[in-house]
Design a protein around this nucleic acid. Sequence first.
DNA 1: TCGATAATGCACTTCCGTTGCATGTGATAA
DNA 2: TTATCACATGCAACGGAAGTGCATTATCGA
Lengths: 138, 138
Amino acid sequence: MERIEQFLESRNIRITAIRLLVYKFLAEKKVAVALGDIENAFEKVDRTTLYRTVKTFEENDIVHQIDDGTGIAKYALCEAGCHCDIKTDLHLHFHCSHCNETVCFTDRKIPQIKVPQGFVAENVNLVVKGLCDKCSCI
Amino acid sequence: MERIEQFLESRNIRITAIRLLVYKFLAEKKVAVALGDIENAFEKVDRTTLYRTVKTFEENDIVHQIDDGTGIAKYALCEAGCHCDIKTDLHLHFHCSHCNETVCFTDRKIPQIKVPQGFVAENVNLVVKGLCDKCSCI
DNA sequence: TCGATAATGCACTTCCGTTGCATGTGATAA
DNA sequence: TTATCACATGCAACGGAAGTGCATTATCGA
């Protein structure tokens, strides 16, 4: 827990109980979580607070937002050294249509995409949908 | 207009004035449109009717839905012969963060994606964000 | 300890997607 | 032609999620 405190302080984020708990929650989850998941985990805490907590994390490159096509934004902790930079930190996400979980494949980089003349690519989002390893063998 | 009628009839879709107009609207647009865009174009027509019109088109493989990461579903006419099949009809989309338009790059197929053992890929969504040809030279 | 600044909680709004139900319209069969 | 039926349309309303304004509370620094 102290490591988390140090980490947040290094990002100039004020330490609060909620922020520590939310960070811990995200760190323990292996998959990307929606705001609703966090709300369910902390029922006593106001929605808005959790919303703003995650937003603060996002603004400081602690989490990155994932659009997995469900229409609900999900969040996952960035890897160490991640600055959510377009060129280096892109990876693809996998959304399981059965259990509805979204995981990051941080080791699978997105292949270079060529766009037509005149277009400027700044960001790439690649989501593969299907069955995850847990659901595919059912 | 008669060609549109024939086309819709061939898909077993009953011809109505609204459906013809919506189809025409989609055909004239070079970019993917949101339901809100259609609503603005046909202010006299009820939201729900337009919603269900597009849904009917989607169910009959006349349009395909695009998730460009804005959180708002967009729609574009399928190409001739498109059945929105996972294996053959995938293409990438480009979302311009300046003019907010989304275009289909139907000629750019998505490269083969490898997923870890145990995962089953059924669908791929790839959206490139950046500046389109119109906005990049401003 | 005090004051400034930021975090939290509450109420509220907006937007989009979606559904239920009543009404209108167009095709079909008697 | 008329009766009937299926489907299209319009209206109202709901629900989820994102977002905002403001009052209150907590935290940090002087």
